[in-house]
Amino acid sequence: MKALHKLIEERVKPNFTGDGKLKRFWVVFDSLETFLFTPGHTTSKGVHVRDGIDLKRTMFLVIVAMLPALLFGTWNIGHQYYLSLGEITTADAWSAMFLDKIIVGAIKVVPLIVVSYATGLGIEFVIAGMQRALPSTRVLVSGMLIPLIMPVDVPLWMVAVATAFAVLIAKEVFGGTGMNILNVALTARAFLFFAYPKQMSGEIWIHDVMGSKAAGTLQLADGYTGATALGTIGQYGGTASQW
């Protein structure tokens, strides 16, 4: 690994420092370098030895702790989808079509994660670049929490807008990590709830539930949130059989 470090120090780093042509992207380089190698910085004042723990490892463990919820959620998206389609019955609902459920779930979840991370990290890097500070792990946890609390059929552009709003208003205006008084992920959720109430309620919780309705195969899940009766009548007309 010494060779790799030498390569980075001698060949890659000069492009980002001094008059290197990529000096504008110093923050990106520095984040990646400190990701790969804990710098050989030694303690300078106060304690002479330090605990092995750092913010990266702490935050990484938070993400590890989220993985079970993420995996179950992925499966559950597919499960609810096929349940609503009527392709699985209550008797074999838990065991059947495991792989299909995961695939459907992944198709919904992966884009959410990608959009949330891309937006969050993008903003973090820009702000860090403006402040000449370091971004690194700051948004890794929020970027994972946001997909976890989004409805499955939420439009991706709404995720991007909500993430941008949350990172900027809930965190950066207060001075960044450790100084925010609002939870970033919940701010994203609350923002969507108040900014797009119509899109955030009703059919959004089960993947393609409208399709199932149209096909007439809809088997409802235990329940779903929706507009008031008046809202439903407004949407579908007065025929009770449609809702």
């Binding site: 050989g40 910085h41 030694t42 030895v49 092995g52 723990i53 750092d54 792990t137 990590t177 100084m179």
Partner: peptide, 28 residues
């Protein structure tokens, strides 16, 4: 002191040769 490391699983008598590395940079 954190359970993010296996210290708490290893024998209580083990002695460690710690260096002055900061083990990370100052963060928020």
């Amino acid at each position: 002191a954190s359970r993010a490391f296996p210290t708490w699983l290893l024998p209580k008598g083990k002695e460690y040769d710690l260096s002055t590395n900061n083990n990370g940079e100052e963060r928020a």
